[in-house]
Amino acid sequence: MKVQTAKTASWTNAKTRKQEKKWNTANSVYHLMMLPGMIFLLIFSYIPMFGIIMAFQDYIPAKGMLGSEFVGLEHFIYMFQLPDIGQVFRNTMVIAFGKILLGTFGAIIFSILLNEIRLKFLKKSIQTVVYLPHFLSWVVLAAVVVNMFSLDGIVNQILSFFGLENLNFLGSNSLFQPLLIGTDVWKEFGFNSIVYLAAITAVDPGLHEAASIDGANWWKRVWHITLPSMLPIILLLAILSLPNILNAGFDQVYNLYTPMVYETGDILDTYVYRIGLLGREYSFGTAVGIFKSIIGMILIISANEMAKKYTDRKLF
């Protein structure tokens, strides 16, 4: 490989001049390639961003964005003064972090395990089956979860069978967060594993063969070959999921929680939704959204810098 690199280098030097011209034309072609996408982005993403000023107004639809009264940072201050905001933030982050962490682990482990299945039919069927729950909305799945985890549900029947104490998953403040995280991992791990599977197929089987011949067992091969080659994609997806640290899954929580578990189950989005139900608080909703975006931006940028520092590879 080294030889080849050297060869390439000398080739580059020799052709520098000709190349220079090529790069210039290439440069404009690159701009042209970006153009259509950027136009769409301008129209449907950047122009609507004037709506961000709503966060600094008392926006009333009838007055419009030009006529509504400006209130500065009032909505942001108000958000931090809400009596339960500390609890709500804590819940949101714990639930979201748990989902990101366990969801990522679950999907990686599953994709590695699935890759070991050699019966093509079995492999394909299982892959199809695990991706199914992703398509069921929480409105539908919540009913299934409630049936399974209620006091007379199947989970408690199993616990009773083993002589264990029955657990009130849906009404207990200590069990509700694990329930949310667990059921979310269950719903999404199959779909999330798709990217990892695509990454695994990109690993050169020759490497595995060579390692096997060297006497490396399965575990060692996974650890030294499969995982390192998946690392860039794992890092990338982990970083891209960071902005979601304040999105703990509105639909899921909304369809599963009751006042009994507000203490550990109420998240930012459900809280804002309930406030919105009483007054049509567009401005407040926008302010919360911006706050979430800013946190997301800080996280994603610092993560990208960290990735560059430690792995010498920026992800975007």
Partner: peptide, 14 residues
């Protein structure tokens, strides 16, 4: 510009 558009949105009304 891409990253920014992924993080921020003007919201439903705009």
């Amino acid at each position: 510009l891409l990253i920014f558009s992924m993080l921020f949105s003007g919201g439903m009304i705009p």
